[in-house]
Design a protein around this nucleic acid. Structure first.
Length: 298
DNA sequence: AAGATACACAACCGCGACTCG
DNA sequence: TCGAGTCGCGGTTGTGTATCT
């Protein structure tokens, strides 16, 4: 069957969103909630594709989104998760509820990839982080179908990896601390940001962080997860393996990783370096654990 | 000061997955 | 069971901004 164009191209506006468009979209969602994106352009009068509306909302207007610089802890968490999950940005984003997958993806492509490459070059050339990652990642499709079973493996691996960071019990400083640290550096501001802030009061308190606003029954709830959902959401990415060996080898079990990526030691040392975290910053565990029920997570 | 280049981020596109009749 | 419609994800591109020469 031929896929029809998502929108009637001639009538669809492209390019940057204007504040007026943002307002139209936000006020509509405020009234009806996110979801049923197909109906959004029609009902709002926006000359935008439904996809564009959804993207604009999830990546930019949704309340609870943190913008600006990524903290060092967020960086490390992303690197860990990327190693575990591969380029499953949505899955990775589910562990950082205040960040969007697009944001993480961009940050990875523009910052972390270079950073890791640089670091791995310091160890042994030829085995970039990307290559390491690729080896550990199974083709898409496999992991998705094994989500519920493999997520446990991923969590185990993540726990193992993180336990190297900080063997002590997780401190009680959740994301807010990291958020504060990061937002203090954040220079990004926009009218859309302001719109999002306006919406924070509208969102239910428990929803604001994750932006889980989808009406019941909507599939889109999976796209924006609160912490505990992230731990169990079926859409989340999981160990990119069928037996879990590659997952563990990538993080804790350096025996396996060493075979695949001897150059990773430098990266590891950076990832595992907690030296810079002690002063009011939040450790990796602190970022991860509060996202969900710890007992469920581990 | 002006042009060139690099960088960062928002947005688009295409595909696969899911839902429902 | 099948097909149409819709949604979400990941890769890629376009554009504005910052930095360098």
């Amino acid at each position: 069957m031929g896929r029809p164009p998502c929108c009637v191209k001639a009538e669809v506006k492209k390019g940057p969103w204007t504040p007026e468009e943002d307002l139209m979209l936000v006020s509509y969602i405020q009234e009806h909630g996110p979801g049923n994106w197909r109906a959004v352009p029609t009902n709002t009068g926006l000359m935008r594709c439904s996809k564009s509306c959804r993207l604009r909302w999830t990546n930019y207007l949704r309340p609870g989104i943190k913008r600006g610089n990524f903290s060092d802890q967020e960086e490390k968490l992303i690197v860990h998760l990327q190693a575990l999950l591969g380029n499953r940005w949505a899955a990775i984003a589910s562990y950082l509820p205040e960040r969007t997958d697009n944001d993480i993806k961009n940050y990875w492509n523009t910052h972390l990839k270079k950073k890791l490459k640089k670091m791995s070059a310091g160890g042994e050339e030829g085995a970039s982080a990307g290559e390491v990652k690729t080896r550990a990642v199974a083709p898409k499709g496999q992991w998705e179908r094994r989500l519920q079973t493999d997520i446990h493996t991923a969590r185990q691996a993540l726990r193992d990896a993180l336990s190297l960071d900080d063997p002590s019990p997780p401190a009680k400083q959740p994301l807010e601390a990291a958020a504060t640290a990061a937002s203090s550096q954040a220079t990004y501001a926009s009218s859309a940001d302001n719109i999002a802030r306006l919406l924070e009061g509208w969102m239910r308190p428990g929803d604001a962080a994750g932006g889980k606003t989808t009406p019941s029954g909507s599939r889109s709830s999976a796209s924006v997860l609160s912490g505990d959902q992230a731990a169990s959401a079926s859409h989340s990415g999981t160990a990119p393996t069928t037996d879990g060996s590659t997952v563990t080898s990538k993080t804790k079990d350096d025996g396996g990783a060493a075979a695949a990526a001897p150059a990773f030691s430098m990266l590891e040392s950076w990832l595992l370096d907690d030296g810079g975290m002690g002063h009011g910053e939040v450790g990796l565990m602190d970022v991860v654990v509060p996202l969900g029920d710890p007992s469920e997570f581990f």
